[in-house]
Amino acid sequence: METLAELLPRAGGVFVQMEDEIASISAVIGASWTGAKAMTATSGPGFSLMMEALGYAVFTETPCVIVDVQRAGPCTGQATRVGGGDVMQCKWGMHGDVEIVALSPWSVQEMYDLSVRAFNIAERLRLPVFLMADEAVGHLHETAEFHERIAVEQRDRRKGLPPFGHPDPGGVPPMPCFGDGENLLVTGSTHDDRGYRKVEEPQVHARLVERLRQKVLLRRDELVDVERHMLDDAETVIVAYGFTARGALAAARELRGRGRKVGLLRLRTLWPFADKEVAALDGRARRVFVPEMNHGQVAGEVRKHFRGDVVGYGQTDGEVIPVATIVREVERIS
């Protein structure tokens, strides 16, 4: 955020340091409705504070990007140490049933590339998109390539159409903005396709919630992003994400050197979950190993979709998982 404070005004943008994280995400939503691309970044307790307004963003279909640099919780925990315990929180931390999109970078390059992707998905689908980094990635210093030109999704601001309804399952309505002369009515209560409150009609609520879910679920093939390493003949597959995946790739290579048939399925999206990609490991892979900086938040999802053995390894001491630990644990279960 300190860098944005320096750079955003130079690029014609606006930076404001609000009084707390609730105010920050609230200001982001207000700004987004004027047509601006808006984001905030936080960690740990700040992410918890944002949950109510994130539900508002989902329900009012407000594009925005939230960077969560995960740290070791719960609570204040280890303020500047690494953690990965917010994987479920970004999906289920809001009350109610929601589908969101969460990306998982493992490098400085991906902090950049996935930020661009996050904004484009947010604008295309009208929802909050989470860049679920962790402290280790957040403090990395390494080379990265910044592009001269990037693809930028332009918001569909067509006027005259219902801004909160679409005939198709999972359809995304256009989003004209404040000042466009559309007399917009935006509310976090259950609303019809023009924004009128309809809190006592079960069908209106059910239809709205379902369309918001299907916006993500029907597009899972274009959203889910994985990277496959040495999977063709792998008997043991490591499923990893974020900084941990760097150690997992190094471990897989070392284990290959020792004659073990080990591969890596790296998740660059956490949500929607890569269920098909995990299920596709069935047949060749005998077991899946999931190292992560929490106690099994992704391992549990993997178990739902992979029929063989799934072994989780959770480390939550504020340190990254060493390559040697992953090598040792994979050898132990193989």
Binding site: S26, A27, S32, F178, G179, T187
Partner: peptide, 26 residues
């Protein structure tokens, strides 16, 4: 919903923060 203009009906207590974001952005 009474007034025919752009209206942003927000969360409990947060109206001023939403308004701040909207005003600064436009």
């Amino acid at each position: 919903p009474h007034i025919l203009a752009d209206t942003l009906h927000t969360l409990h207590g947060r109206a001023v923060a939403y308004a701040t974001g909207a005003k600064l952005a436009n």
